[in-house]
């Protein structure tokens, strides 16, 4: 039931990480999924991703200081 992605200038691009990418991320930063910031599964920005609890969403933020910066949030039940 993938919905259409909501586009807006202030919504950065959200993408769902695959299982492999997830493990790479945890290894790279030496963390567990609990330590990541959260995003609710009802969040409108990830409605099109069909993300479930335990998924990790990668967010490509536009940043004034770094141009583009990556941020990761784990999906939780809201």
């Amino acid at each position: 039931m993938a919905e259409k992605e909501q586009k807006h200038t202030i919504i950065p691009k959200h993408t769902k990480l695959s299982e492999k990418e997830k493990q790479e991320l945890f290894k790279k930063y030496d963390l567990t999924i609990k330590e990541l910031p959260k995003i609710l599964d009802i969040d409108p920005a990830i409605a099109h991703l069909d993300a479930k609890e335990g998924d990790v969403v990668k967010i490509a933020r536009k940043s004034l200081t770094a141009g583009e910066s990556m941020y990761y949030r784990s999906v939780t039940h809201g």
Binding site: Q6, H8, I10, I39, L40, D43, P44, I46, R73
Partner: peptide, 17 residues
């Protein structure tokens, strides 16, 4: 309102703005 309609990342952006 932003968080409810556009998501938490947009809300973060709005706080900064």
């Amino acid at each position: 309102e932003i968080a409810a309609t556009l998501g938490i990342e947009a809300a973060r952006e709005t706080i900064i703005d």
